[in-house]
């Protein structure tokens, strides 16, 4: 599904990722873990086309996607959420999801400005679909609230709904549980499983080990830009190098 091959990323003198390789299998939830500064977010930024790599390749369904811009990757079915939620604060919750449906609608500037009949029909369809998606993540009651006013946990859910709007094949989530309380984290775990069973492959960067061990089918461990280990949650928990890296960090 997604193949990361010898990805290297250098910022000035800092090697943020050093020849990292792994494969993500379709239909699985893969966890990417590692101490702060390990390079997890950098990896997501490269895979989603926001940063350009120094060396290496990313293959998506066998196709080389390294160097493609983020919007093109999104249209190919690769979406992501952000560690620091990136909502459109000036818009309502519903409108945020409607932006996510941009690629699922097609009226151009002229059709929109002239309010042509098919534009109105499309707008109705998008609105209904956006409500469905909000309902799917459980925040349909907040549809008309301002996105900026959402509590943190609901903001995370909104970001997930917005990404799901693209009907992705693969979804990268960067620390979706950060800032959530334990009940919200459990609900998030259920949501991630629900997303996977709807056919979306999930890659999960997360510090909450309980959640990671609970939902992930496979785990990749990064440390200081290098891949430290890879395996099932069981194998990772017993891996002495991983334990050392986490304990060493404090």
């Amino acid at each position: 599904m997604l193949e990361v091959k010898e990805i290297t990323c250098v910022f000035g003198g800092l090697v943020a990722l050093d020849k990292v390789s792994f494969t993500i299998r379709p239909g699985e939830i893969t966890g990417v873990i590692g101490p702060n500064g390990a390079g997890k977010t950098t990896l997501f930024n490269i895979v989603s086309g926001i940063y350009s790599r120094t060396a290496g390749q990313v293959l998506f369904s066998g196709r080389d996607i390294s160097g493609l811009p983020p919007d093109q990757l999104a249209r190919l079915g690769l979406v992501r959420t952000f560690q620091n939620i990136e909502l459109f604060g000036q818009m309502t919750v519903l409108e945020n999801v409607m932006v996510g449906l941009h690629t699922k609608s097609h009226c151009g500037i002229l059709a929109c400005a002239l309010k042509l009949p098919w534009h109105l029909a499309e707008e109705r369809r998008i609105r209904a679909r956006a409500l469905e998606l909000l309902d799917y993540v459980g925040i349909a009651d907040l549809a008309d609230d301002s996105a900026a006013s959402l509590p943190f946990g609901k903001g995370r859910l909104l970001e997930i709904a917005r990404a799901l709007a693209l009907e992705p094949q693969i979804m990268l989530m960067d620390e979706p549980a950060a800032g959530l309380n334990s009940r919200e984290t459990w609900e998030l775990g259920d949501l991630i499983r629900k997303i996977r069973s709807s056919g979306v492959t999930v890659v999960l960067v997360e510090h909450d080990m309980e959640l990671v061990m609970d939902v992930c089918d496979a785990i990749v461990v990064l440390n200081l830009g290098q891949k430290l280990a890879e395996g099932t949650p069981r194998q990772i928990q017993d891996n002495s190098a991983v334990i050392a890296a986490y304990l060493g960090e404090g």
């Binding site: 811009p69 990136e86 459109f88 000036q90 932006v99 941009h102 009226c107």
Partner: peptide
């Protein structure tokens, strides 16, 4: 319209708009 929303999205966060498939 969808164009107006996309423009406001670019205004708020160009990166977030792009990862939603908008050709900013």
């Amino acid at each position: 319209s969808r164009i107006g929303r996309a423009l406001r999205a670019i205004h708020d966060s160009e990166v977030a708009a792009q990862v939603l498939g908008i050709n900013a």
